[in-house]
Amino acid sequence: MGYASKSPWVIHYDGSSCNGCDIEVLAALCPGFDVERFGIINTGNPKHADIFLVTGSVNERNIAVVKQIYEQMVEPKVVIACGICACTGGIFHDCYNVIGGVDKVIPVDVYAPGCAVRPEAIIDAVVQGIGILEEKSKALQAAKKGA
């Protein structure tokens, strides 16, 4: 295992979530689940983050924000859609302003469905995301060497 998988720093963005999934994301950081055991830190700064956790769907107002956060993150990076809203739009899918899941704007690597998504599901998704992060990191190293 490389170092990318041992210290995945997370940034969490609330699209148009009902806050149900946000609470679950934060619950994963609390003593009950304590994801810091795996080196996961909630950074709040896209430039420091490796994993982008999005809750809630994308709408006309936040589409630029989601894009910008994604672009500011430094490679290698992974996007995880948390909750059914972030995956497909969920119960808000036919709202007048909702565009749909996060994958309408940025490439999503892992989908964690659920309404609200359970902390266990988030942890599972992050672990899966770590595997992808590791692959991307290796690809980046190889590209650097080749260049």
Binding site: K6, W9, P31, D34, D50, P76, L140
Partner: peptide, 28 residues
């Protein structure tokens, strides 16, 4: 700190892992 907050906390070498990961990140 983690113990003071009732958590298990990361491994002892976590800061080292963090720095190694940061070094491997892309240059921006």
């Amino acid at each position: 700190s983690a113990r003071m907050q009732g958590r298990v906390g990361p491994p002892l070498l976590q800061p080292y892992y963090d720095v190694r990961k940061l070094i491997a990140k892309d240059d921006v």
